[in-house]
């Protein structure tokens, strides 16, 4: 979880340069909420930064949908294995 540098006011608008530096943290929800709110404001107002965010968010969303198949069966077997450990 990163915080905004102490020398920047918590309420001052975020610049393009600042947003570029923290965009990945923003996408991963790994930043201080107050600072994230300033980034959100900037992204809504700045076309270039907004497009940049959209591009990376699309990549991240697509990756998040990429789950291995047959997970349920394996997890069920592992839960059964867990029961066998504690039932002995």
């Amino acid at each position: 979880m990163i915080r905004r540098p102490w020398y920047r006011s918590k309420t001052s608008p975020a610049s393009c340069r600042e947003v570029g530096r923290v965009l990945q943290h923003y996408l991963d929800s790994e930043m201080d909420p107050e600072w994230a709110a300033r980034v959100t404001e900037h992204l809504e107002a700045c076309k270039d930064c907004g497009l940049e965010e959209e591009t990376y968010r699309e990549i991240k969303s697509s990756l998040a949908r990429r789950q291995p198949s047959a997970t349920d069966d394996a997890v069920a077997r592992l839960r059964e294995f867990g029961r066998s450990l504690t039932d002995d």
Partner: peptide, 21 residues
């Protein structure tokens, strides 16, 4: 011991499996 295993380990099995994959 069984209660601790059920409380701390069992809820994480799915995450562990996904990470292991």
């Amino acid at each position: 011991l069984k209660e601790a295993f059920d409380r701390y380990v069992v809820p994480e099995i799915e995450v562990l499996y996904r990470v292991a994959r």
